[in-house]
Design a binder for these strands. Structure first.
Lengths: 135, 135
DNA sequence: CTTATAGTTAGCTACATGGCTAACCAATTA
DNA sequence: TAATTGGTTAGCCATGTAGCTAACTATAAG
């Protein structure tokens, strides 16, 4: 489990801006020229180009110029890499929740057993459950 | 398709920093005090606290102070929200890929048909080069 | 009561980011 | 060849971010 590629820094930073997320969403539907991409935004072209550049540096977008028009396309690897990070965290989180739940269940049973013991009149099934550890 | 909740801005911005990602990863394994969280980092406490604050504003982390110790825990909703964004984009992307593949298949068949046809009629300039399909 | 612990507040610096205008190529098109 | 189109470069400005030190507050612990 080595440390995350620094790529993640750039990818998340790129996605932190609504303009850039919109560009990514647009490119999910297919490639487009800079002009086409810029058209919906009320922003000077040089400003818009900076966003494109940030996306390229992050690896989310590739572009290529032919003639005088630059065509941009999504390069999904970086996107998938970031998604993986989430899934990994969620896996750890859920494993923890499972352990926690198991722990709570164990507590419940122990408390129930203690209660039964204190009553001395009631006898019921006392089965030890699988314990998976606690925190 | 309304615009994304502004939450996403903060969540992605929060995750764009390796220190903060490390904190989130640590909190996936269970809650911890600020001191415990700060310990692995060679950073002055006030600097570290800023990171905690960014995480709280983003909704990724909640904290609560009792006595003189502040305990932090992950609040997974924001994390899940961001993960959803990825899955949504990927769904669109994959749908597009499917359409594209279908389109290429159709092209292939048409070209094969055209080739068969031209072989019987015209033998002069038949270019068998692979050309990239466009949209 | 005194001291140590755990954060917190205030205020500073340096650099990154997001926006702009103006001027500048380099391919098309007329 | 001249004009237009599609991007690009350069440079400016305001704001935001990440780090620091120093000084402060409030709860434990001795």
């Amino acid at each position: 489990m080595a440390n995350q590629l620094p790529q993640l820094d750039q990818v998340f930073a790129a996605l932190a801006d609504p303009t850039r997320r919109a560009i990514v969403m647009r490119l999910c539907a297919g490639e487009a020229s800079v002009g086409e991409l810029a058209e919906p935004f009320e922003m000077a072209l040089p400003s818009f180009m900076k966003h494109i550049h940030v996306l390229e540096v992050s690896g989310l977008v590739q572009s290529e110029k032919s003639g005088r028009v630059r065509t941009c396309r999504l390069s999904p690897d970086a996107l998938v890499g970031a998604e993986d990070w989430f899934q990994h965290q969620r896996a750890i989180w859920e494993a923890r929740l499972d352990r926690f739940e198991a722990y709570v269940m164990k507590l419940k049973k122990e408390r129930a057993a203690a209660k039964r013991l204190s009553k001395t009149t009631d006898k019921t099934t006392n089965k030890p459950s699988k314990r998976k550890g606690a925190e």
